[in-house]
Design a protein around this nucleic acid. Structure first.
Lengths: 169, 169
DNA sequence: GCGAACGTTCAGTATTGACTGAATATTCCG
DNA sequence: CGGAATATTCAGTCAATACTGAACGTTCGC
């Protein structure tokens, strides 16, 4: 990893680390976005990111459950290979949008508590609730629109990357 | 504060606490959304939230700079009064959207680093960058659309809350 | 201007949680 | 099956940071 690459990796780590995920998540995702070759073993990652194997294992599980990385084996090779697939982007965006649903759920807890209070008291919370309900509905539509426009702009290129040797789901 | 209200306050604290802000931010904002009367002094907040004055002071500054609370004095009263104004909602949404710009900026650091690498290597990062660029542009438009639809649905009610005695900006 | 009440600051404390690393489990080849 | 290489787990460590509380500064009524 060059110093410049390390800067990028570290910045992404810092950013995701202060946004609900762990720093290691950001570092690992960032590296998988720029590494060459695009598939990396756990040992590769541990070396490049100066991290323990335990950290790689835990972080990989986290990122995989978020849909941001893909893991698979090649035949004749005990190692597992990690990569950031094209779908990672959609996963990240969807994940970011899940915030709205959680916000809406929390405000509903509050609305239930205020059920028998005068409307003037619950007005503030009702406004917030309405907003999150709106965004929970409209945000996925925005993602869909992006994917549509993107597909229209580059019709075929998405699958044009050289296929990895042998990497089943 | 009733036990139900405490649950709401604590849940919001936990959620914002794991989303880049401090737990106290969430607790304070949540309480200001449901408290009666809607204006509270620093002492009120310290008592209700079981927090020190220092914590209230620091958190109030944080929330104010984020546009999520409003502070002001009444004449003949040394105390400062805090409240969650109608604009807090827009501030929170805008704040959440600033994420896209920061993401875009970080990916541009990465793109600069990959400038002299083959296009195949930078393809993954370019796709991510394109997405964040799109969202940085379109997300504010979504907020604007919400505000428009909301205003159309309830033309006058937004200012119908009883005005606080005397609370300049 | 004096005194009291309030807000702010900041060094210290406690807590959270991310990461380490060794022990354990699993997988695959011979 | 046996053995070696890899992945996972988890208790322990360490660093980051949210919060406390006392000292300080500021503001307002008198």
């Amino acid at each position: 990893m060059t110093p410049g690459e390390a800067t990028f990796v570290e910045e992404m780590g810092h950013f995701l680390g202060t946004s609900g995920m762990t720093p290691m998540s950001g570092r690992m995702w960032a590296w998988l976005l720029i590494c060459d070759p695009p598939e990396q073993t756990a040992s590769d990652l541990a070396t490049e990111l100066h991290a323990s194997r335990g950290a790689i294992s835990g972080t990989a599980r986290l990122l995989e459950s978020a849909g941001m990385i893909r893991r698979g084996r090649r035949r004749g090779d005990r190692s597992e290979y990690f990569s950031a697939p094209a779908g990672a982007l959609e996963a990240l965006l969807t994940d970011a949008g899940s915030m709205y649903g959680r916000f809406r759920a929390i405000t509903e807890v509050g609305l239930a508590v205020l059920a028998d209070r005068p409307p003037a008291v619950s007005a503030r919370l009702r406004e917030v609730h309405a907003a999150f309900t709106f965004f929970e509905r409209e945000y996925p539509a925005l993602i869909a629109r992006y994917l549509r426009e993107r597909a229209a702009a580059e019709p075929v290129v998405l699958t044009a990357a050289p296929a990895p040797q042998d990497m089943p789901a």
